[in-house]
């Protein structure tokens, strides 16, 4: 961490921006619902993160929630389907899991848990595969089809929390506490990185999306600062990043923590079509291979689950 304030701000730039978008999204919903924030006498945004209407005419909808309702063999009105397409188009451009790191309110809780975890140096109490979220994703769709109700929407802590912020508090905050305890004391990035099927859904979108983290291989010194701060460290596969020129895994949340900490400016946001593939000498490649293999084994004292 740099000592000067401007240096610190450089590291924190994206963190500050993310907090601004997360909080302003919450505030926009809250203000529209409680303080009648309006535009042309229509609410600025009505509804919640499951489905909403922006400026009175732009429908938005959670594609995964819609997918679950469709799995129950119910037909839906075109409004919510249009909203789904708009949201999908946005995340196709901005990066699938931009949802997770820039919008989802749970991110603030899991970030806080990570911080506590780092400070207290807590070890994982359980091990779950990071692929387990895809199992939950499939399970949510199968159960929606069997039981006839959108399975994840009935237990989703994201929807429950967001609803209760806007429409009145129940005991939803307890779920946040649950996530905090789970993430801080039981499993690192437990909810967002291992279980959340919505994150899994957006990971699939992210595989195809345009805005990615560009990896400028020749400048990388393999200091692995980026791996230390990354909430999904398995995506920083240097071998793959070198050959493709960007972080290609859909699980990358575009949170830009790595951009902030990289001392060499190796990592930057860029649009996929503009990223040129980089030619590598055999020598360079071998060098990389051994370094990343070591990294994957030890991960500097941290096991990548």
């Amino acid at each position: 961490m740099p000592d000067t304030l401007s240096g610190k701000l450089g590291v924190w730039k994206y963190l500050i921006l993310r907090r601004i978008t997360q909080l302003s999204t919450l505030l926009l919903f809250f203000g529209s619902a409680h303080w009648a924030w309006n535009y042309n006498e229509l609410p600025v945004i009505s509804g919640n993160l499951s489905s909403s209407l922006l400026l009175g005419f732009i429908p938005l909808a959670d594609p995964f929630a819609v997918l679950q309702i469709l799995a129950t063999q119910n037909t839906l009105l075109s409004e919510v389907l249009t909203g789904t397409l708009i949201v999908l188009a946005f995340y196709f451009i901005a990066g699938g899991r931009v949802w997770c790191s820039w919008v989802c309110p749970i991110n603030m809780v899991s970030d806080l848990a990570s911080r506590v975890r780092r400070k207290l140096n807590i070890q994982n109490a359980v091990q779950i595969s990071r692929r387990f979220r895809y199992t939950i994703l499939v399970l949510a769709l199968v159960l929606s089809a069997i039981t006839g109700v959108a399975a994840f929407e009935w237990i989703s802590p994201i929807s429950i929390f967001h609803r209760e912020v806007i429409f009145g508090l129940g005991s939803g905050w307890a779920i946040l506490l649950g996530i905090f305890i789970f993430d801080a004391f039981i499993l690192k990035d437990g909810w967002c990185g291992h279980l959340c099927p919505l994150g899994a859904f957006y990971s699939i979108v992210g595989r195809f999306s345009l805005l990615r983290i560009k990896f400028d291989a020749p400048t990388c010194t393999h200091c692995v600062e980026c791996v230390t701060v990354c909430p999904e460290p398995q995506v920083l596969d240097f071998k793959q990043a070198t050959s493709k020129g960007y972080i290609s895994a859909g699980e990358c949340t575009n949170c830009a923590r790595c951009i902030g900490v990289c001392p060499e400016n190796t990592l930057k946001f860029d649009l996929k079509p503009w990223i040129k593939k980089q030619e590598l000498t055999i020598n360079n490649q071998q060098n990389l291979t051994t370094k990343t293999d070591n990294l994957n084994e030890t991960d500097h004292g941290r096991k990548i689950a």
Partner: peptide
């Protein structure tokens, strides 16, 4: 099955009749 639990009906109600179950 169909309700997406967005609460837009709640906001639309001019009498504050509707609530979302928490």
């Amino acid at each position: 099955a169909k309700c997406i639990k967005c609460g837009q009906c709640v906001t639309a109600c001019p009498y504050d009749t509707l609530k979302l179950a928490n």
